[in-house]
Nucleic acid binder design. Structure first.
Lengths: 183, 183
DNA sequence: GTCTATAGACCGATAGAC
DNA sequence: GTCTATCGGTCTATAGAC
């Protein structure tokens, strides 16, 4: 096993506290702009202490990204298995993006962080995979381009309209994406 | 005036050579991942020599971005003055993005670089400005969301389909963007 | 098992000699 | 205009205290 685990709910586990603080700082300032020194200071430990729990900064970043990666992989699995109608697929996609808004905002700020740890292995396949899932494995150039416009545009609306009412935004954005898809 | 200017076409001007090498390296590896040491080495000078020509790395980045910024500002000016039909506006937008593919790829890798020098002043206004130009100053939420899907999606197709035939890609991508715009 | 102390390598940036 | 030398900051690595 990895580390101590309290039987009560308290999170005294250092690793957990590091990930919590890191998540908050990364979302607020981006990955590159947040130093391990900053994270260590806020935890009242030395920078070197972080290196006991994480071999490299990249590993810490990878752990912060993990829940988002799991959620996206989950979305793929569901859509690949159940083949929902396009509207339903895009709506649940919108919700995944919405759920991880903070982390995705940090990624938008410096996408180089996606190469952290083994996160890159997953993310590298997403582009191709979303094409396959929405347009089929043998899609034409036109179908793939339309899918790109729909998916990329849809994802961006989440970060660009943070003050909009969520249900309304989802409806409008998904409608626009569906028209781009021409279905 | 700034520096020596040869009457013949030769570019022995050091400042120019720095910008050339920097442009190439930034496009290849991104802004953050390219060190001044790397650029200096390729020019056969020391890192400190670069600091005679550029006060900060950000200033060098800003100069690399400048042609793209000028071109985009030009596009805004043309569209704001002549109010072309949406298809024409999106087509010329596609071409601007296409023309600066390398620089925009570097930006996509770490957008934080957009805060370099006074570049940020321009870029910060582009989001709002493109809404105004394509949907009008008093656009509804729906119109602004549709514009976002169209513009963001359209721009991304350029970098995601580098091997596609340009005229075909532009036609397909602009069509998809127009459907998202619902015009 | 957990953390501190310390040091190395590289980064952007500056000061001053030539 | 370019150099050497150096500074403070970053990530990273290791030795060793407890």
């Amino acid at each position: 096993m990895d580390h101590e685990q309290r039987t009560d709910g308290r999170t005294t586990d250092m690793r957990e506290r590091i990930v919590d603080v890191a998540t908050e700082r990364f979302a607020a300032k981006g990955f590159a702009a947040t130093s391990l020194q900053d994270i260590a200071d806020r935890l009242g430990v030395t920078k070197a202490a972080l290196y006991y729990h994480f071999r490299r900064k990249d590993d810490l970043i990878a752990e912060v990204l993990a829940p988002m990666v799991v959620d996206v992989e989950d979305w793929f699995r569901r859509v690949e298995e159940r083949h929902p109608p396009p509207r339903e697929a895009l709506e649940s996609y919108f919700e995944v993006v919405q759920r991880h808004g903070a982390v995705l905002a940090a990624i938008a700020r410096d996408p180089a962080a996606l190469e952290a740890g083994d996160t890159a292995v997953h993310v590298a396949r997403w582009g191709q995979r979303v094409q396959t899932v929405l347009a089929g494995a043998d899609a034409t150039l036109e179908e793939r381009v339309c899918t790109t416009v729909a998916i990329v545009g849809l994802a961006r609306t989440v970060s660009l309209f943070p003050d909009a009412e969520v249900d309304e935004l989802r409806r409008i954005a998904v409608d626009a994406a569906l028209r781009a898809l021409r279905v």
